[in-house]
Amino acid sequence: MGEPGIEGPAWLPSLPPSLGEYLAPNLQPVPLIPVLALAAALFYLTGAISLWRQDRHWSPIRTASFLTGCTAIIVVMGAGIEGYGLRMFSIFMFQQLTLMMAVPPLLVIGSPGTLLLRATPHNRFGRPVLKAAIWGLRSRCGRLAIHPGFMVPLFLLSFYGVYFSGMADLLLPNWYGHIGLELLFLVAGILFTVPLISADPLPSRQTHLGRMVDIFAEMPLHAFFGVVIMMATEPMVKFFATPPESWNIDPIHDQGVAGGLAWSYGELPGVLLLMFILVRWQRDEARGWIRSERAAAIAGGDPDLDAYNLYLEHLAGRSERLR
């Protein structure tokens, strides 16, 4: 069932690329990632409905966010665009950026970990699931997975390591390698996003300043990577240098489009994440001030302000004695 140049169960479109062909419902012979996304959406929706039927609150906004992320995966990885992504650098880059930058925030905002803990029944069948979920959310392995020392190098590997080390030419001619890279992109994006905006019970949490540092360290990567690709005069990935003749694609032009996507499309989700973190930081600071004022009112005063006033009175007494 393999196509020329691709080993494994792959299907290549015969018509030239167009918007209609990109969105056409042409599934691959083994639509692994779309099926996984559909299963995740069904499990999530089942948990949310079970809470609503028990008159327990669960945010419709979080539900819509997670389902939107799953839908994006199904469309980008399940429609005809996946067939063109097998041999077009620009389409493959669009899929990579979607899996790494656009989809993870939607999934993470949905707080699937919290929903799992709240919706799983505490009986003999649900207890092992709860234990496994708690272990995953609070274990040392979870702490390592979202640590910048692991997460940032994995993010770098997904861009610079894949394309500059020859890994792309080694894996992309094989359907299994192609799917493996796409799963790597999705996992790397989720692990990068979780410590930034997740509301789930994580094994450790970064400060707002630490999150800002991570975002500012990541944002220039796409711009520099995109510029390098756009300035290249030879194909960066040899596998993409020979697309099917019926597609009528210029590989160098297509590579330039891929670089432009890495520069533009890759930056937009980072800017939105930065704004999200700033808003949350401001909100948490405001809550901290409110709690401080309430504590001061209950205690009959602000301890810091009282100490400062006592210090001023002490200085005034010393000046009177000096006179």
Rank of each mutant, 00 (worst) to 15 (best):
Y22P: 03
S198D: 14
I73G: 00
E245N: 12
E218W: 00
M275W: 01
W289S: 14
N174L: 11
M77R: 02
Y160A: 12
G80A: 05
L97V: 08
A41I: 08
L19N: 12
R138W: 00
I81H: 00
A24K: 11
G177E: 12
L312N: 15
S14Q: 08
L86E: 15
I179N: 12
P173F: 08
W281D: 15
A40M: 12
L38M: 13
R118S: 13
P17L: 09
E245C: 05
W247I: 10
V279P: 03
V257E: 10
L171W: 07
T98F: 00
A41K: 06
L183G: 07
V152A: 15
G83I: 05
P148H: 02
Q96W: 05
M212C: 06
L261Q: 04
G85N: 11
G161C: 07
W175I: 07
H147W: 08
Y22S: 04
L184Q: 14
A232I: 03
L42I: 15
S90I: 07
L23E: 06
A102D: 11
P235N: 09
G2V: 01
H122N: 10
L156K: 04
Q206W: 01
I146W: 00
E267A: 12
N26H: 14
L156A: 09
H122E: 12
W11S: 13
R323P: 03
M212E: 13
